[in-house]
Amino acid sequence: MHSSELEPAHQQECCCLVPSGCSKTLMARPVASEAGLNFLAVKCPELFSKWVDESEKAVRSLFAKARANAPSVIFFDEIDNLVVIRGKESDGVSVADRVMSQLLVELDGLHGRVNVTVIAATNRPDKIDPALLRPGWFDRLLYVGPPSETDRVDVFHVHLRKMPCGFDVDVSELAHLTEGCTGADISSICREAAISAIEENLNCSEVKMEH
């Protein structure tokens, strides 16, 4: 992706639908890096406040900061915590409803949102208000599934490169045996293998295939 692709006339928002553990957060930062843009990462639960109007103010401040540092990318992690389906509260307008409305205002560009691209990630698309997914706001939905066998080989190499492994450790075989595993699962497998080796022998010098 190049910065020219993010001009206002062609600007699109993107929502990545990613199963848990598939590195949705890690994929967002290279988008800004490749395009040479400033990157603002937000964990959506952190935007909520118990004080009246503070949550909406946090959203306004975020977009103001993005405009001040344009061209920029705003990345909403776990956006399902921020844009839940409206109208579920029976005691008036909830904080979540107000935050959702403020976000829609900002995405609608009423305050001159120029050279600001928004990316969001979620593993619970069923919790997102349908209004946010209509054309004009989040125009593009991308599903990122678990890594393929070839990708799992690369992921194993990443997690094993600093781990002393025996000559019998076959990364290709490990990738074949871990069909359906996510990057987080593979990280856990490598970590547990190291623990297993230590439990077997505190003085062990390498992790073997059996571990």
Rank of each mutant, 00 (worst) to 15 (best):
M1I: 12
M1K: 12
S4Y: 12
E5A: 12
E5N: 13
E5D: 15
P8L: 01
H10R: 08
H10C: 04
E13Q: 06
C15P: 03
C16V: 04
C16P: 04
L17T: 10
S20P: 08
S20T: 14
C22W: 02
V31C: 10
A32G: 06
A35E: 10
F39V: 14
L40E: 09
A41L: 11
S49C: 01
W51L: 00
V52S: 04
E54V: 00
K57I: 05
L62K: 07
F63H: 02
A64Y: 00
K65Y: 06
A68L: 14
A68S: 15
N69R: 02
V73L: 06
F76Q: 03
I79V: 14
L82G: 00
V83K: 02
V84M: 13
G87M: 10
E89C: 01
D91H: 05
V93A: 08
V95H: 00
A96R: 03
D97T: 06
L104A: 05
D108Q: 13
G109T: 02
G109H: 08
G112I: 13
V114C: 10
V114D: 09
T117P: 02
A120E: 02
A121S: 06
R124W: 09
P125Y: 01
K127G: 00
I128F: 05
P130Q: 15
P135S: 10
G136C: 09
R140V: 11
L142Q: 12
Y143R: 11
G145E: 08
G145K: 02
F156K: 02
H157Q: 14
L160P: 04
L160N: 03
C165S: 11
G166S: 14
V169I: 13
D170K: 09
V171G: 01
S172K: 05
S172V: 08
E173M: 05
L174N: 02
H176V: 12
E179Y: 14
G180T: 10
C190T: 06
I195S: 04
S196C: 05
A197V: 03
L202E: 12
V207M: 11
H211K: 04
